[in-house]
Simulated scan of single mutants.
Amino acid sequence: MTAPIETTSGQAEAHPEAVLSGAGRGMIEGRSLGQIAWSRLRRDKVAMAGGVVVVLLVLLAILAKPIEMVFNLDPNAFHQNLVDPELLSPKGGWGGMSWSHPLGVDPKFGRDILARIIEGSWISMLVATGATVLSNVIGTVLGVIAGYYGGWVDSLISRLMDVFLAFPLLLFAISISASLQDGAFGLSGLPLRICVLIFVIGFFNWPYMGRIVRGQTLSLREREFVDAARGMGARGPFILFRELLPNLVAPILVYSTLLIPTNILFEAALSFLGVGIAPPQASWGGMLTSAVDVYQSDPQYMFVPGLAIFITVLAFNLFGDGLRDALDPRSK
């Protein structure tokens, strides 16, 4: 039964109860900023494709050891019977490709290239992610402090950024990595080299993040919500980490997706120069180093790790560009 309708001057009027009875039907729900960004990101097919590749690469790096155990892959197993020692090239098909070795074998020792690509994935991801986290933490903290307080604090931190940016980073990284190869801080071998790479790449790259965060903080500190927090008696640390920092998540996240591939290239360059990950541990940069001497007789050995680096860097860059557009409130 519906509520009766009264007529006044020939016009129908419904009782308030009749209006309220349908008030909860078809209500329009608001969307959060995260939902809006996700809807924008889903419309960008190129960014989504890059994101899928990034997820697959991360899963490959995390599951590298279990995959090697399940499929009985040994990245350091020698197969000298598959290599021609005089020509320094694999026997059989192109690059020694077969059902047992889908990507071929190492032209020097006959090691399986697929196994070494999988093994090198977690090295590259670990070094790049650790260096990115380190540089983001240092750059974010110093950048937000410099942008908020200004004055002599801003001048001091800004000049410190200029000093770090003036360092010849590659030469400095080579010298530090070469001097700490034997042992330091109670570490040796592969753990020491990974920690040194993370420290060198992350510690000297923080000014890039610091400049971005400082610039964003300079504009945010004049916003109304910061004035309201000051008016309520909030102190500096509370405003920094409870008001300003949550509004800096988007630029930090976007820049991180663009910084990870840069760090992957940096690690590959150091390994290529012989001061990064030492053999026989597999790494993409180290594989390129080994391929220099045999690229004429077996070009595939250089092509495969180079393609792995290319796909990884391209996927992160495409996903980072799409994420930047999705998180930008001024984009359509």
Rank of each mutant, 00 (worst) to 15 (best):
D298I: 08
G24Q: 12
K332V: 15
A77F: 06
R116N: 02
A12D: 11
W152R: 10
A61H: 09
V144C: 13
H79F: 00
S177K: 01
L170Q: 09
D321K: 06
F109K: 09
G151C: 05
F319A: 15
L253K: 02
P261R: 09
I252D: 10
E17H: 08
G51S: 15
L190R: 04
S135L: 06
R330L: 07
G22W: 03
S121H: 09
F241E: 06
G130W: 00
S290C: 00
G202I: 13
T132R: 04
S271L: 07
A64F: 03
A229S: 15
R235T: 02
G96S: 06
M27T: 15
P246H: 07
T217N: 05
L197K: 02
A14M: 08
T8M: 10
G322Q: 05
V153K: 08
I145N: 13
R111D: 03
L240P: 01
G202D: 03
I309H: 14
R42H: 06
L327N: 02
L265A: 07
L245F: 14
D154H: 14
F310E: 01
Q216Y: 12
A326T: 08
I145L: 15
V46A: 12
Q300A: 14
G34W: 13
L170I: 15
A18K: 11
S89Q: 13
G286Y: 07
G151K: 15
F109C: 01
E17M: 10
L170F: 15
T8R: 10
Q296A: 09
L327P: 04
G139D: 10
V83F: 01
G34D: 10
A291G: 02
F185E: 09
M209L: 11
V249P: 05
D325T: 05
S98F: 05
V200Q: 12
P16Y: 09
I123K: 04
F310L: 13
S290F: 09
L180P: 04
L248F: 07
Y148P: 02
M287E: 06
G322L: 05
S175V: 12
E68W: 06
M48N: 08
F272A: 00
P246N: 08
L218H: 06
P191R: 11
Q281G: 00
D162Q: 01
V141F: 10
G24T: 09
L170T: 13
G10W: 04
L273P: 03
P85H: 03
V58T: 14
I239R: 12
M69S: 14
T8K: 08
M27I: 15
V163Q: 10
D325R: 07
A47V: 14
F109N: 08
V313N: 10
A250T: 11
N205E: 12
P237Y: 04
H101N: 02
F266I: 14
I28T: 07
K45T: 14
V294N: 02
V52H: 02
M69T: 15
P191A: 03
V249T: 14
D162W: 00
G50D: 12
S100R: 14
D44N: 14
M287G: 10
A291E: 01
G233K: 03
T257R: 00
D154N: 13
G34S: 13
W38M: 12
I145F: 13
P191T: 02
S158C: 04
S177R: 00
A128M: 01
A178L: 14
N72D: 12
H101Y: 09
I62Q: 03
L307H: 03
V213N: 11
L56C: 10
I198L: 05
M97N: 07
